[in-house]
Amino acid sequence: MAQRAWKPWLFLAPALIIYLIVIFVPSIYTFYLSFFNWNGVSPQKTFVGLSNYIQLLTKDNVFQLALKNNLLWTIASLVFIMGFGFALALLLNRKLKGRVAFRGIFYFPFLLSGIVVATGWSWMYNPTNGFVNKLLASIGLESWTHAWLAEPKTALPAVFIAALWQGVGQPMVLFLAGLQTIPADPYEAAIIDGAKSHQRFRYITLPLLRETFVIVFATTMIGSMKVYDIIYGMTGGGPAESTQVLSSWMYYQTFKFANIGTGSAISFFLVMVTMVVIIPYVFYTTKKSHV
Protein backbone atom coordinates (compact mmCIF):
# COMPACT_ATOMS: atom_id res chain seq x y z
CA MET A 1 0.00 0.00 0.00
CA ALA A 2 2.80 2.36 0.99
CA GLN A 3 4.55 1.58 -2.28
CA ARG A 4 1.35 2.36 -4.20
CA ALA A 5 1.20 5.72 -2.49
CA TRP A 6 4.70 6.94 -3.34
CA LYS A 7 5.14 5.25 -6.72
CA PRO A 8 3.26 7.90 -8.74
CA TRP A 9 5.35 10.60 -7.04
CA LEU A 10 8.50 8.78 -8.12
CA PHE A 11 7.39 8.90 -11.75
CA LEU A 12 6.27 12.52 -11.44
CA ALA A 13 9.43 13.64 -9.67
CA PRO A 14 11.74 14.32 -12.66
CA ALA A 15 9.19 16.50 -14.45
CA LEU A 16 8.10 18.11 -11.19
CA ILE A 17 11.67 19.02 -10.22
CA ILE A 18 12.33 20.57 -13.64
CA TYR A 19 9.00 22.41 -13.47
CA LEU A 20 9.81 23.76 -10.02
CA ILE A 21 13.30 24.91 -11.04
CA VAL A 22 12.44 26.33 -14.46
CA ILE A 23 8.93 27.74 -13.92
CA PHE A 24 7.83 27.91 -10.30
CA VAL A 25 10.94 29.31 -8.58
CA PRO A 26 11.61 32.00 -11.26
CA SER A 27 7.92 32.97 -11.09
CA ILE A 28 8.11 33.48 -7.35
CA TYR A 29 11.39 35.38 -7.76
CA THR A 30 9.77 37.61 -10.40
CA PHE A 31 6.92 38.32 -7.97
CA TYR A 32 9.49 39.18 -5.29
CA LEU A 33 11.34 41.52 -7.70
CA SER A 34 8.12 43.39 -8.47
CA PHE A 35 8.42 45.05 -5.05
CA PHE A 36 11.86 46.50 -5.79
CA ASN A 37 13.44 49.26 -7.83
CA TRP A 38 16.34 47.46 -9.55
CA ASN A 39 18.19 47.76 -12.86
CA GLY A 40 18.99 44.05 -13.14
CA VAL A 41 22.72 44.22 -12.44
CA SER A 42 23.31 46.62 -9.56
CA PRO A 43 24.13 44.93 -6.22
CA GLN A 44 21.57 47.26 -4.64
CA LYS A 45 17.83 46.61 -4.87
CA THR A 46 15.63 49.27 -3.31
CA PHE A 47 12.45 47.98 -1.69
CA VAL A 48 9.53 50.11 -2.89
CA GLY A 49 6.56 48.04 -1.69
CA LEU A 50 3.55 48.32 -3.99
CA SER A 51 4.94 51.44 -5.67
CA ASN A 52 5.63 49.72 -9.04
CA TYR A 53 2.01 48.47 -9.16
CA ILE A 54 0.59 51.85 -8.11
CA GLN A 55 2.79 53.66 -10.63
CA LEU A 56 1.56 51.38 -13.42
CA LEU A 57 -2.10 51.78 -12.50
CA THR A 58 -2.10 55.51 -11.86
CA LYS A 59 0.69 57.09 -13.93
CA ASP A 60 1.75 54.83 -16.77
CA ASN A 61 -0.68 55.62 -19.59
CA VAL A 62 1.04 53.11 -21.88
CA PHE A 63 0.48 50.29 -19.37
CA GLN A 64 -3.21 51.20 -19.11
CA LEU A 65 -3.52 51.17 -22.89
CA ALA A 66 -1.63 47.86 -23.07
CA LEU A 67 -4.00 46.31 -20.52
CA LYS A 68 -7.01 47.50 -22.52
CA ASN A 69 -5.47 46.21 -25.76
CA ASN A 70 -4.80 42.83 -24.16
CA LEU A 71 -8.40 42.53 -23.02
CA LEU A 72 -9.71 43.54 -26.47
CA TRP A 73 -7.30 41.11 -28.12
CA THR A 74 -8.45 38.30 -25.83
CA ILE A 75 -12.14 38.96 -26.45
CA ALA A 76 -11.52 39.15 -30.21
CA SER A 77 -9.50 35.92 -30.09
CA LEU A 78 -12.19 34.06 -28.18
CA VAL A 79 -14.90 35.28 -30.52
CA PHE A 80 -13.20 35.24 -33.92
CA ILE A 81 -10.32 32.76 -33.72
CA MET A 82 -12.43 30.23 -31.81
CA GLY A 83 -15.52 31.05 -33.88
CA PHE A 84 -13.86 30.77 -37.28
CA GLY A 85 -11.91 27.71 -36.12
CA PHE A 86 -15.15 26.02 -35.09
CA ALA A 87 -16.94 27.02 -38.30
CA LEU A 88 -14.08 25.71 -40.44
CA ALA A 89 -13.98 22.48 -38.43
CA LEU A 90 -17.74 21.94 -38.96
CA LEU A 91 -17.33 22.61 -42.66
CA LEU A 92 -14.28 20.41 -43.13
CA ASN A 93 -15.80 17.58 -41.08
CA ARG A 94 -18.31 17.10 -43.86
CA LYS A 95 -17.61 14.82 -46.77
CA LEU A 96 -16.32 17.51 -49.12
CA LYS A 97 -14.13 16.99 -52.13
CA GLY A 98 -10.55 18.04 -51.29
CA ARG A 99 -11.25 18.50 -47.58
CA VAL A 100 -7.85 17.06 -46.59
CA ALA A 101 -6.13 19.65 -48.78
CA PHE A 102 -8.27 22.41 -47.29
CA ARG A 103 -7.44 21.26 -43.76
CA GLY A 104 -3.75 21.52 -44.67
CA ILE A 105 -4.19 24.96 -46.26
CA PHE A 106 -6.00 26.41 -43.24
CA TYR A 107 -3.61 24.82 -40.76
CA PHE A 108 -0.44 25.80 -42.63
CA PRO A 109 -0.16 29.45 -41.36
CA PHE A 110 -0.16 28.16 -37.77
CA LEU A 111 3.15 26.42 -38.51
CA LEU A 112 4.82 29.71 -39.51
CA SER A 113 6.68 31.77 -36.95
CA GLY A 114 5.01 34.99 -35.82
CA ILE A 115 7.82 37.11 -37.26
CA VAL A 116 7.43 35.54 -40.73
CA VAL A 117 3.70 36.27 -40.65
CA ALA A 118 4.36 39.80 -39.36
CA THR A 119 6.80 40.54 -42.18
CA GLY A 120 4.48 39.24 -44.89
CA TRP A 121 1.42 41.07 -43.59
CA SER A 122 3.38 44.30 -43.04
CA TRP A 123 4.13 44.31 -46.76
CA MET A 124 0.50 43.55 -47.56
CA TYR A 125 -0.55 46.59 -45.51
CA ASN A 126 2.10 48.89 -47.01
CA PRO A 127 0.20 52.12 -47.73
CA THR A 128 1.79 52.71 -51.15
CA ASN A 129 2.65 49.34 -52.67
CA GLY A 130 0.78 46.90 -50.39
CA PHE A 131 -1.58 44.20 -51.64
CA VAL A 132 -4.53 45.39 -49.54
CA ASN A 133 -4.61 48.95 -50.89
CA LYS A 134 -3.80 47.81 -54.44
CA LEU A 135 -6.68 45.33 -54.29
CA LEU A 136 -9.09 47.97 -52.99
CA ALA A 137 -7.99 50.41 -55.70
CA SER A 138 -8.31 47.78 -58.42
CA ILE A 139 -11.96 47.08 -57.53
CA GLY A 140 -12.88 50.75 -57.46
CA LEU A 141 -12.66 51.24 -53.70
CA GLU A 142 -9.77 53.69 -53.74
CA SER A 143 -11.47 55.84 -51.10
CA TRP A 144 -11.18 52.87 -48.70
CA THR A 145 -7.40 52.69 -49.01
CA HIS A 146 -5.65 53.49 -45.79
CA ALA A 147 -2.31 53.55 -43.98
CA TRP A 148 -3.63 50.55 -42.03
CA LEU A 149 -0.78 50.13 -39.58
CA ALA A 150 0.02 53.83 -39.26
CA GLU A 151 -3.22 54.98 -37.66
CA PRO A 152 -4.06 54.10 -34.07
CA LYS A 153 -7.71 53.33 -34.92
CA THR A 154 -6.88 50.69 -37.52
CA ALA A 155 -3.47 49.42 -36.39
CA LEU A 156 -4.59 46.91 -33.74
CA PRO A 157 -7.49 45.48 -35.82
CA ALA A 158 -5.11 45.19 -38.80
CA VAL A 159 -2.59 43.23 -36.73
CA PHE A 160 -5.41 41.10 -35.33
CA ILE A 161 -6.53 40.10 -38.84
CA ALA A 162 -2.99 38.81 -39.48
CA ALA A 163 -3.11 36.93 -36.17
CA LEU A 164 -6.53 35.50 -37.09
CA TRP A 165 -5.17 34.27 -40.43
CA GLN A 166 -2.28 32.63 -38.63
CA GLY A 167 -4.10 31.31 -35.58
CA VAL A 168 -7.38 29.92 -36.88
CA GLY A 169 -5.78 26.58 -37.83
CA GLN A 170 -5.12 25.49 -34.27
CA PRO A 171 -8.69 25.58 -32.92
CA MET A 172 -9.86 24.15 -36.24
CA VAL A 173 -7.68 21.06 -35.78
CA LEU A 174 -8.71 20.64 -32.13
CA PHE A 175 -12.41 20.99 -32.98
CA LEU A 176 -12.00 18.56 -35.88
CA ALA A 177 -10.43 16.03 -33.52
CA GLY A 178 -13.33 16.54 -31.11
CA LEU A 179 -15.95 16.21 -33.85
CA GLN A 180 -14.44 12.95 -35.02
CA THR A 181 -14.78 11.40 -31.58
CA ILE A 182 -18.57 11.85 -31.69
CA PRO A 183 -20.13 8.54 -32.78
CA ALA A 184 -22.76 8.43 -35.53
CA ASP A 185 -25.39 6.67 -33.34
CA PRO A 186 -26.85 9.68 -31.53
CA TYR A 187 -27.24 11.52 -34.83
CA GLU A 188 -29.01 8.52 -36.40
CA ALA A 189 -31.32 8.24 -33.40
CA ALA A 190 -32.04 11.96 -33.54
CA ILE A 191 -32.86 11.80 -37.26
CA ILE A 192 -35.29 8.93 -36.59
CA ASP A 193 -36.88 11.07 -33.85
CA GLY A 194 -37.28 13.86 -36.42
CA ALA A 195 -34.65 16.28 -35.07
CA LYS A 196 -33.72 19.06 -37.47
CA SER A 197 -30.08 19.86 -38.25
CA HIS A 198 -29.91 22.87 -35.87
CA GLN A 199 -31.42 20.72 -33.11
CA ARG A 200 -28.83 17.99 -33.70
CA PHE A 201 -26.14 20.65 -33.53
CA ARG A 202 -27.57 22.21 -30.33
CA TYR A 203 -28.36 18.99 -28.44
CA ILE A 204 -25.70 16.54 -29.69
CA THR A 205 -22.70 18.28 -31.22
CA LEU A 206 -22.25 21.10 -28.70
CA PRO A 207 -22.66 19.02 -25.50
CA LEU A 208 -20.34 16.29 -26.79
CA LEU A 209 -17.69 18.88 -27.64
CA ARG A 210 -17.61 20.27 -24.09
CA GLU A 211 -14.10 18.97 -23.31
CA THR A 212 -12.80 20.28 -26.64
CA PHE A 213 -14.24 23.70 -25.85
CA VAL A 214 -12.43 23.69 -22.48
CA ILE A 215 -9.13 22.95 -24.18
CA VAL A 216 -9.63 25.44 -27.04
CA PHE A 217 -10.88 28.17 -24.71
CA ALA A 218 -7.92 27.72 -22.36
CA THR A 219 -5.25 27.59 -25.09
CA THR A 220 -6.78 30.52 -27.02
CA MET A 221 -7.15 32.61 -23.89
CA ILE A 222 -3.60 31.94 -22.66
CA GLY A 223 -2.16 32.46 -26.15
CA SER A 224 -4.00 35.75 -26.55
CA MET A 225 -2.83 37.06 -23.17
CA LYS A 226 0.76 36.23 -24.11
CA VAL A 227 0.55 37.80 -27.60
CA TYR A 228 3.88 39.41 -28.45
CA ASP A 229 5.77 38.38 -31.59
CA ILE A 230 3.26 39.40 -34.24
CA ILE A 231 2.73 42.79 -32.59
CA TYR A 232 6.45 43.37 -32.13
CA GLY A 233 7.09 42.36 -35.74
CA MET A 234 4.31 44.40 -37.34
CA THR A 235 4.21 47.61 -35.31
CA GLY A 236 6.75 47.38 -32.47
CA GLY A 237 3.92 48.66 -30.23
CA GLY A 238 3.39 51.80 -32.34
CA PRO A 239 2.20 54.05 -33.76
CA ALA A 240 2.35 56.23 -30.67
CA GLU A 241 2.31 53.09 -28.44
CA SER A 242 -1.25 52.40 -29.62
CA THR A 243 -0.65 48.66 -30.15
CA GLN A 244 1.33 47.95 -27.01
CA VAL A 245 0.18 44.90 -25.09
CA LEU A 246 1.28 43.72 -21.66
CA SER A 247 3.99 41.39 -22.99
CA SER A 248 5.54 44.00 -25.25
CA TRP A 249 5.43 46.70 -22.58
CA MET A 250 6.93 44.24 -20.09
CA TYR A 251 9.77 43.64 -22.59
CA TYR A 252 10.36 47.38 -23.01
CA GLN A 253 10.38 48.02 -19.26
CA THR A 254 12.59 45.05 -18.42
CA PHE A 255 15.10 44.85 -21.25
CA LYS A 256 15.12 48.30 -22.86
CA PHE A 257 14.69 50.53 -19.81
CA ALA A 258 16.26 48.11 -17.27
CA ASN A 259 13.32 48.68 -14.90
CA ILE A 260 13.23 45.09 -13.65
CA GLY A 261 10.75 45.82 -10.84
CA THR A 262 8.24 47.45 -13.17
CA GLY A 263 8.64 44.70 -15.79
CA SER A 264 8.10 42.06 -13.09
CA ALA A 265 4.99 43.86 -11.87
CA ILE A 266 3.57 43.85 -15.42
CA SER A 267 4.24 40.12 -15.75
CA PHE A 268 2.32 39.53 -12.54
CA PHE A 269 -0.60 41.56 -13.80
CA LEU A 270 -0.55 39.29 -16.84
CA VAL A 271 -0.62 36.17 -14.68
CA MET A 272 -3.36 37.53 -12.43
CA VAL A 273 -5.64 38.65 -15.27
CA THR A 274 -5.29 35.23 -16.90
CA MET A 275 -5.92 33.37 -13.65
CA VAL A 276 -8.99 35.41 -12.75
CA VAL A 277 -10.71 34.28 -15.95
CA ILE A 278 -9.30 30.87 -16.58
CA ILE A 279 -9.46 29.18 -13.16
CA PRO A 280 -13.21 29.69 -12.61
CA TYR A 281 -13.90 28.73 -16.22
CA VAL A 282 -11.92 25.49 -16.11
CA PHE A 283 -13.40 24.55 -12.71
CA TYR A 284 -16.92 25.25 -13.91
CA THR A 285 -16.62 23.32 -17.15
CA THR A 286 -14.66 20.33 -15.85
CA LYS A 287 -17.17 19.88 -13.01
CA LYS A 288 -19.82 19.23 -15.64
CA SER A 289 -17.69 16.93 -17.77
CA HIS A 290 -16.32 13.46 -17.24
CA VAL A 291 -12.59 14.41 -17.58
Binding site: N126, P127, A147, A150, T235, P239, A240
Partner: peptide
Protein backbone atom coordinates in the same frame (compact mmCIF):
# COMPACT_ATOMS: atom_id res chain seq x y z
CA UNK B 1 7.08 62.31 -45.45
CA UNK B 2 6.13 58.97 -47.08
CA UNK B 3 2.45 58.03 -46.78
CA UNK B 4 1.77 56.49 -43.34
CA UNK B 5 5.40 57.13 -42.34
CA UNK B 6 4.74 56.53 -38.65
CA UNK B 7 4.66 52.79 -39.43
CA UNK B 8 6.97 52.73 -42.44
CA UNK B 9 10.05 50.61 -41.82
CA UNK B 10 13.33 52.59 -42.16
CA UNK B 11 14.51 50.11 -44.82
CA UNK B 12 11.43 50.95 -46.91
Amino acid sequence: FPKGYSMVDPTE
